[in-house]
């Protein structure tokens, strides 16, 4: 199945690889929020179903950068109560609950993802609950674009530019990592064994990242003796 959430996607056919940008059902505002100003038809979307590899740009989620001290029980309990979700303590791990996803960014830093637009009230509730605590809640919803890469060859495509070991033994679903992809820094989140990767490049780099991924996808079938 192609990538995309809630059937809201637009695909672009390119050299046989399908690549999805935004959504023909999405509003003008949502489309404007995406970084790659391209769009195609729902027919293309339908034809993309069943391809081996798909790339999507999704509407960026609401995003908060949360800083706080894990040793401060007050911080942890209050933050978790507001979020309704545990804070991932293990490096490079992710916790999620409902429409909320929390990615570990550092020993005192998390990225909280929620539905687009949900970040404003979430930030207010967090700030209110953590008023007397040493924390930082920062709206970063515009900071990053949201790409999704899915398909059997996804690891191979990423390996062309990512020095991280993405082997299933080493990087399992529920893992995230801040690393490098090609010539830019990248936040990766592995959702499942498909595998489906969520990629969060800095917003201004998104056109480059998409161009790089489309280029890398055109040649994803390696010529190993033991290639599938």
């Amino acid at each position: 199945m192609p990538a995309g959430t809630g059937g809201s996607s637009i695909f672009l056919a390119l050299d046989g690889a399908w690549f999805l940008i935004g959504d023909d059902l999405m509003s003008e505002l949502d489309r404007a929020a995406c970084t790659v100003p391209l769009g195609l038809s729902a027919k293309a979307f339908a034809e993309a179903a069943g391809t081996r590899l798909a790339l999507a740009e999704l509407v960026p989620p609401g995003a908060l950068n949360l800083r706080g001290d894990l040793a401060d029980h007050g911080f942890v309990s209050k933050a978790c109560a507001v979020l309704g979700c545990e804070l991932p303590r293990a490096p490079n791990s992710v916790q999620s609950a409902g429409e909320l996803t929390v990615l570990w960014l550092g020993p005192d830093e998390w990225l909280v993802l929620t539905a687009p637009g949900g970040e404003i009230s979430l930030a207010e509730r967090l700030e209110e609950a953590l008023l007397e605590t040493h924390v930082a809640v920062t709206d970063v919803s515009g900071n990053r674009a949201h790409l999704r890469l899915k398909g059997a060859a996804a690891r191979e495509v990423l390996a062309k530019g990512c020095p991280l070991d993405l082997h299933p033994r080493m990087f399992k679903p529920g893992s995230c990592a801040q690393t490098v992809l090609a010539r830019t820094s990248m936040l990766l989140h592995l959702l499942d064994d498909a595998p489906t990767f969520d990629l969060f490049p800095r917003r201004s780099f998104a056109p480059y990242v998409v161009a790089w991924l489309v280029d890398a996808m055109r040649d994803h079938e390696g010529v190993f003796l033991n290639a599938a």
């Binding site: 490079n92 020095p163 690393t179």
Partner: peptide, 10 residues
Amino acid sequence: PWCGPRDEIE
């Protein structure tokens, strides 16, 4: 110390 082994370029 937090993220584990990574290439020097990071």
